[in-house]
């Protein structure tokens, strides 16, 4: 199931980036696991029900601002403060995980979405707890990178 979710996430990220941003998100098999020194921003949405997990969409805040600018049709100068970027990253995560959730429901894994949340900071990492599997999928979006982390609670723990 976990590998199926990987594929659903890859499909959803590509779809959302192409539709909302006109941008190709290509899977990067050599995703860099190292932390960036730049400020990071992470949009997260979870799903809970017959299958439970959470998906984090991580990138540096510079790229998050670029995403916001493109999505809202504003110049980077018009993006005032962090709120707009946070909201956009939350919505981006919501669209990606919403698509994954719909596919899961179609396959019989009924679940509901949690509200989006956003984390900002430097040198933070997302770690799994016992009974949870963590997967990392890297994407190249032009010259920028996106890291998607998926935490899935093992079925026997549900």
């Amino acid at each position: 199931m976990v590998s199926e979710i990987d594929e659903l996430v890859k499909e959803a990220v590509k779809d959302v980036f192409s539709t909302m941003l006109g941008m190709n998100a290509e899977v990067d098999p050599k995703a860099d696991q190292k932390q960036s020194d730049e400020e990071l921003i992470s949009g997260a949405v979870g799903f809970t029900g017959k299958i439970t997990g959470v998906v984090f969409i991580n990138t540096v805040s510079r790229f998050a601002k670029q995403i916001t600018s493109s999505m809202l049709g504003l110049s980077p100068d018009e993006i005032d403060g962090d709120e707009m970027v946070n909201d956009t990253m939350g919505e981006l995560a919501n669209m990606i995980v919403g698509q994954v959730k719909s596919r899961l429901c179609d396959r019989g894994y009924e679940c509901v979405l949690t509200v989006p949340s956003v984390v900002r900071g430097q040198n933070f990492s997302i770690e799994s707890t016992t009974g949870t599997e963590r997967r990392v999928i890297g994407f190249n979006c032009g010259a920028e990178k996106l890291k998607v982390e998926v935490l899935i609670k093992h079925e026997n723990n549900q």
């Binding site: 995980v97 919403g98 698509q99 719909s102 596919r103 429901c105 179609d106 979405l113």
Partner: peptide
Amino acid sequence: LTAEAGKEN
């Protein structure tokens, strides 16, 4: 407008 496109939804 929905983020959830599942058949049942």
